[in-house]
Simulated assay, not measured.
Amino acid sequence: MIPLIALIAGATVARLVGLAGVDALDGWHPALRVGLALLFTLTGFAHFTSPRREGLIAMVPPRLPHPGMLVTATGVLELAGAVGLLIPATARPVAAGLALLMVAMFPANVSAARRGLTLAGRPVTPLGPRTVLQIVFVGAALTISFGT
């Protein structure tokens, strides 16, 4: 739920700043980039901080090798993506790459939900709500990539 709040709050605050006269944030498209960047900053840092890191490693489907390395790699990609979203010249291709990354990582969410895992002491989001969240997040990235 925190990533969704970050997306909505970040985009809303950025849009308000744009309405207050900051030209770089004048419009929903740049504001959405800020919201998505905030989301990926939060989730990216979770890949490196305890106890979330341990939970994310446990979420990696058992058939995949080197779960710690995969969590590190995806964390780096998320943080780099957050930066790339804030640079107008790179935002569109970065957003497309992040959409693909989210699709590629979704099986870990499915696996975690099916195995009844916990993340930082709390059950992972059930598969139905997690799927809806994933659609919203991927949709936001695709809106940045293909929107005006």
Rank of each mutant, 00 (worst) to 15 (best):
R115W: 05
L25G: 03
F45N: 12
P30K: 02
L86H: 10
A120D: 15
V22G: 08
M59Q: 00
G81S: 01
P126E: 01
G27N: 10
E54H: 09
A91D: 02
A104C: 02
A11F: 03
G18A: 12
Q134D: 12
R52Q: 13
P65F: 07
S145F: 03
P62N: 09
A6N: 11
P30V: 00
I87E: 12
V124Y: 02
I135T: 14
G84A: 08
T41S: 14
G55K: 05
L142P: 09
A140K: 08
A24K: 11
F106N: 06
V22F: 13
T143I: 10
P51L: 11
F137N: 02
L85E: 06
G55S: 04
A80F: 08
T118V: 14
L4I: 13
L86P: 10
I144P: 04
M102K: 01
P129M: 07
M69G: 15
I2D: 15
M59V: 00
L4T: 11
L64W: 13
G139Y: 06
P88I: 00
V94P: 04
A91N: 03
G97P: 04
A112L: 00
G35S: 05
P30L: 01
N109C: 02
A89L: 09
G139M: 11
A9I: 13
G116A: 06
G35V: 04
G35Q: 03
G97A: 09
M105I: 03
T90P: 10
A31L: 13
G35T: 02
H47V: 01
S111V: 05
P67Q: 08
P88S: 03
A14K: 01
V17R: 07
A104R: 01
T74E: 11
F45Y: 15
L56E: 03
L133C: 11
E54P: 06
L79T: 02
L133I: 08
T125D: 04
T74Q: 13
S145T: 07
A80L: 14
G68P: 07
R15S: 11
T118Q: 14
T41A: 15
I2F: 14
M1W: 05
T125P: 01
M102V: 00
I57L: 09
V76Q: 14
T72G: 06
P67H: 05
M59A: 01
